[in-house]
């Protein structure tokens, strides 16, 4: 057998290693991208909103506390204009949240 071909067969073994390593890195990165796409910054603010809302209502003796959940809030102002402030600042137009730390300090959009 030609020595070049022996060397080539030896090289293919290195490529098998490369395949395994690169494949695992790719799979890890995909899982990471899935998580990063899910765990957006505004989700944190909406979770704060939900817990604050429940705190306000439970203080008023409301029994069945609502769960506002995580939603994509967009106010469609016109076909070409969209208001996205409530994605992070949910409850910005709710007077009960006027003193809330997640609203106060933020100018109205």
């Amino acid at each position: 057998m030609n020595s070049d071909i022996q060397a080539e067969n030896h090289a293919l073994r290195k490529w098998h290693w490369a395949f395994a390593i690169v494949g695992v890195v790719a799979a890890v990165l995909f899982t990471l991208s899935y998580w990063m796409d899910y765990d957006r910054e505004w989700r944190k603010y909406q979770r704060n909103y939900a817990s604050e809302l429940r705190a306000i209502l439970s203080g008023k003796g409301v029994r069945e506390l609502p769960n506002p959940g995580i939603v994509y809030v967009q106010t469609i102002v016109s076909p070409t204009r969209v208001d996205r402030c409530q994605m992070c600042h949910r409850g910005i137009d709710d007077p009960r949240f006027a003193k809330s730390p997640h609203i106060s300090g933020k100018s109205r959009c």
Partner: peptide, 12 residues
Amino acid sequence: LLSIGWIASLVS
């Protein structure tokens, strides 16, 4: 090596 590579690549 090939199985790891293929499974991981198919996942990704």
